[in-house]
Design a protein around this nucleic acid. Structure first.
Lengths: 225, 225
DNA sequence: AACGCATTTCTGGTATACAAAATTGCATAG
DNA sequence: CTATGCAATTTTGTATACCAGAAATGCGTT
């Protein structure tokens, strides 16, 4: 997609990984000089990388004020989850119609992987398995543009989605929903799969309040923006 | 969003406009030096601008091979229209639920503007009115993230959508569909509005063949990519 | 002691210079 | 006459130097 030079491309990947995995948190400052020293390159590729990341929305740069890991407002968080739910629903609908049998078998395996990690102490392990399950469905929609678009929004929401796991009972409920979605896809029930996925991903009602309650300070912009 | 320096931001706007309005066509080469001379700036802001445009997908840059106005494959074209239809459908669904009365009045005016330009000689005039009608619905969904996302995909499809108008009979059919969509939104029938919009935007069956038939060479990448 | 203004310093924005890679054209050989 | 390979030129990628604007700090005044 956004192919820059080799150095810049490397930086994009590294920074992206650090943001998505939570090493870099929303609001963290990304100083050009320190980054260039840390990676042993000049400021130019660093700027190109930040530019690319700004394009995909993972970082925000204010003119003359520097670049930070994107932190969003509560309103944007709600908006993005609303869109995310609908994008994933579309993936599920299309997957129900298009996913080959072999890939569905694989999806079953990924679902079982999630179940196996249900009570696991390491929340990250479940998170990763969960990501693989969802990505398998993205791939199943057989629309690589939709797949990229969906992954992009998911990346931007990653810091916030990660928080949801820590809510007690969430993992078990999530697994049950996976099973239902899987069944709908397997039976080719497109609309059912879409609706279930939409509800699975959407954050509404109490769940939204719970999420907002555990978002650390700095993850969200103050109201005065 | 992607706030770069003043010069770069200007360039982004200008180039974006030229691409969306068709002055720059898919496959056109964007030489850094000529652009910098033409706009009277150095290569740095030009590169930043191209970087940003690459992020939004309007241009494609291959390492050491330069930047061109993005030209897509037939497969991508189909994929993008599929997603576009669904994004606009979501806008319409939400607009049916959330659009204030005053804005609906405005939407009616825009619809009439489209109708008035139906037989007009200047196809571009209708195209612009059509864009305003659709954008009013994007705004009506009251989800600015969805609005941005939808506009982004529409921009990328602009060079191809523009071609559709030239198909005889299309404009009249389009106007009838507008009226139906408008009515559904006005009555708060979310699912109906969504379904109608999805069908209005989707390019399928014969319409797809017609579109592909009039796409000029260079607008689509050769199969060997 | 506190508030406001000026100066300094730090960081981002722009320009330019340099290096590396790719394309193109010419020359030579088959 | 054509094809292949080498060289020259063009163009991108990276580094560095310079400039401008914003934040921070310190001094003076009230």
């Amino acid at each position: 997609m956004a192919q820059n030079g080799k150095l810049a491309a490397d930086l994009v990947q590294k920074l992206e990984r650090d943001i998505v995995t939570g090493i870099l948190k929303p609001g963290d400052k990304l100083d050009e000089r320190s980054l260039s020293e840390r990676f042993g390159v000049s400021r130019t590729p660093v700027r190109e990388a930040l530019q690319t990341l700004a394009g995909s929305g993972l970082v925000a740069t204010m003119p003359r004020r520097g670049t930070i890991v994107a932190s969003i407002t509560v309103a944007e968080l709600i908006e993005m989850f609303e869109v995310m739910a609908e994008l994933e629903a579309m993936c599920a609908r299309l997957a129900a119609r298009r996913m080959p049998r072999a890939d569905i078998e694989n999806l079953i395996a990924l679902s079982e992987e999630c179940s196996a990690l249900q009570g696991h102490a390491d929340a990250d392990a479940y998170y990763e398995a969960n990501v693989r399950f969802h990505e398998a469905i993205y791939a199943g929609c057989r629309n690589s543009f939709l797949e990229r678009q969906t992954k992009n929004v998911r990346n931007r929401l990653a810091p916030y989605r990660r928080l949801q796991l820590h809510r007690p009972g969430r993992v078990k409920k999530s697994n049950n929903e996976h099973a239902e979605i899987l069944s709908a896809i397997s039976n080719g029930e497109a609309d059912v799969a879409g609706k279930l996925m939409q509800q699975h991903v959407a954050v509404q009602g109490e769940a939204l309040n719970d999420l907002l309650a555990i978002v650390p300070r700095g993850y969200l912009e103050p109201l005065a923006s």
